[in-house]
Design a binder for these strands. Structure first.
Lengths: 127, 127
DNA sequence: ACTTGTATTAGAGTGCACACCAAGGTATAT
DNA sequence: ATATACCTTGGTGTGCACTCTAATACAAGT
């Protein structure tokens, strides 16, 4: 059959290992994937997008259980729109916080880099 | 004795749990802490700064083994200055990369938040 | 003398997010 | 018929960074 995407291809397209894809399906952050007559997963483009999204959010630092909450809202249908948006905002705010922390760590590293000579013997800035 | 800081106080000041402080000492990302006659750790302000720095870097996403490399350079003395600076730059660059990923995740969340209504039925943007 | 508070150690346990493995099924090519 | 390529499942293993537990010890307060 043409246009059928196996897990190997899906893995490449979504930049997510087959094991991870199966794991995501198992824990429920992606919806169950359609199977062919042999029980093999057949991925649609939408499936790929979902996997990519989840992978992206994971890489950024969101954890599985948070993403599961969102996946559950999606599965419950359109009447959960407000909750979904609230959720997305919460996660965004959390990432924003994380970003601030990371930025301040970068700043501290830059400070050290720029002032290393003068601070070699300066207890205030040496670690 | 006045001016002696026990692990509990050190924990508060550095916002790091006593267990974590002991762990950091054990793995070597902070130097061995001075002990009093009973074997209790006595933290100096510099110790506190070191712990805070390591905690900060950990929170930002650097891993223990990277920080251990740096700690080893410090322990080897001033002649490792160039290596230290190189190291700091590497870590900064890694954090910068991570920051970019986080930012793009935030962007994607914001896009979803801003366009939720119109995309409820739009397969291109729904996950 | 006893309790309370603070600390020590070695080592075991935890939680997360996968990664790996064995045993097996199916389909196509040679 | 046999190799190969792809997939399935259930279960086990891994690495990281803590976190907790048990057994012990000391010092000060009542």
């Amino acid at each position: 059959m043409k246009n059928m995407i196996g897990i190997k291809q899906a893995s490449k397209l979504s930049e997510t290992s087959p094991d991870t894809i199966r794991y995501y399906e198992k824990v429920g952050i992606i919806a169950p994937i359609k199977r062919d007559k042999n029980g093999f997963r057949q991925f649609s483009e939408r499936d790929i997008r979902r996997i990519k999204f989840m992978r992206h959010m994971r890489t950024a630092g969101l954890n599985i259980s948070s993403l599961l909450e969102y996946a559950n809202l999606i599965q419950q249908g359109d009447q959960t729109k407000d909750e979904r948006v609230t959720f997305l905002k919460e996660q965004r705010d959390q990432l924003q916080k994380q970003l601030t922390i990371t930025q301040s760590a970068i700043d501290q590293l830059n400070y050290k880099i720029d002032h290393y000579d003068e601070h070699m013997s300066d207890a205030k800035h040496l670690i």
